[in-house]
Simulated scan of single mutants.
Amino acid sequence: MKIGLYFGTFNPIHIGHLIIANHMAEHSDLEQIWMVVTPHNPLKQKQTLLDDYQRLHLVRLASEDYPKIKPSDIEFKLPQPNYTVNTLAHLMEKSPQHEFSLIMGEDNLKSLHKWKNYEYILEHHDIYIYPRVSEETENQQFKNHPRIHMIDAPIVEISSTVIRDNIKNNKNIRPLLPHKVWEYVVHNNFYKK
């Protein structure tokens, strides 16, 4: 099975994440999308980052009505800080029957050359790029790379940071979150401080 890995803190997961994941599942050759919840980096200040398992639960709630979208805690089990190349190696060892690809925004493509072992990643994995609003031009180094696929997905400019700020300021952000996620966030009084 061809699986697209969509990494994020998902703090919280919002409709923009689901729009992109669903678009990749329906309009590319990816058969499943795994929403890989990235754990809290112990070297960084926690600030408003929810507990790893709370964020995983939010992803589970958001994706349960989408059979092609699955939550993943794969990085919870790996040593921190972790690199994408290590996650890919771990997945290929544990699930050699699957083919793993990356899903990333166009903005991340510009810094791909700074990733640990990016050459290895490009040699062994496809990368599916969704468009982002950006002032900079794309990194020409990867423009015609055979492993990089630009997907004509909707441009979604919804920010988890803005959602958290709005919750803190008692604004109604209900339309930006999947209903069950919104209910869980409100019930648990998340992001109020």
Rank of each mutant, 00 (worst) to 15 (best):
M1N: 10
I3Y: 03
G4Y: 01
G4H: 01
L5P: 00
L5R: 05
L5Q: 08
F7C: 05
F7K: 06
F7S: 02
T9N: 11
T9V: 07
N11K: 07
I15L: 13
I15D: 06
G16M: 06
H17F: 00
I19V: 12
I19W: 03
I20P: 01
I20N: 00
A21S: 13
N22T: 02
H23K: 00
E26F: 01
E26K: 11
H27G: 08
H27D: 04
L30S: 00
W34V: 05
M35C: 11
V36R: 00
V37F: 02
T38L: 09
P39N: 10
N41R: 04
P42T: 02
P42Q: 01
L43P: 04
K44S: 10
K44T: 03
Q45Y: 02
Q47V: 12
T48F: 08
L49R: 10
L49G: 00
D51C: 09
D51S: 12
D52I: 01
Y53T: 14
L56A: 12
L56Q: 09
L56G: 07
L58E: 02
V59G: 11
V59C: 15
L61D: 12
L61H: 06
A62C: 10
A62W: 06
S63Y: 03
E64V: 03
D65K: 14
D65H: 14
K68C: 10
I69S: 07
S72Q: 14
E75Y: 10
F76H: 07
F76D: 12
K77R: 15
L78C: 09
Q80M: 13
Y83G: 10
Y83C: 09
T84A: 12
T84K: 07
V85S: 11
V85R: 04
N86Q: 15
T87P: 12
T87V: 07
A89D: 15
L91G: 03
S95P: 00
P96C: 13
Q97R: 08
F100G: 11
G105S: 08
S111R: 11
H113T: 01
K114P: 09
W115D: 09
W115K: 04
Y118K: 06
Y120I: 14
I121R: 08
I121H: 08
L122I: 00
L122G: 06
H125N: 12
H125T: 01
H125M: 00
D126C: 10
I129N: 02
P131S: 03
P131H: 02
R132F: 00
V133H: 07
E135I: 14
E136L: 14
N139H: 05
N139A: 13
Q140F: 01
Q140C: 00
F142C: 08
K143M: 13
N144F: 14
P146S: 12
P146K: 03
P146V: 09
P146M: 09
I148L: 08
I148H: 11
H149P: 06
H149T: 00
A153T: 01
V156H: 07
I158W: 04
I158S: 04
I158L: 08
I158N: 09
S160H: 07
V162N: 15
R164H: 02
R164Y: 04
D165I: 05
D165G: 14
I167S: 07
K168A: 13
K168N: 12
K171V: 02
N172I: 10
N172S: 14
N172V: 09
R174I: 06
P175K: 08
P175C: 06
P178H: 10
Y184D: 13
V186A: 05
H187K: 15
N189Y: 09
N189W: 06
N189T: 11
F190N: 04
F190T: 01
Y191W: 08
K192L: 13
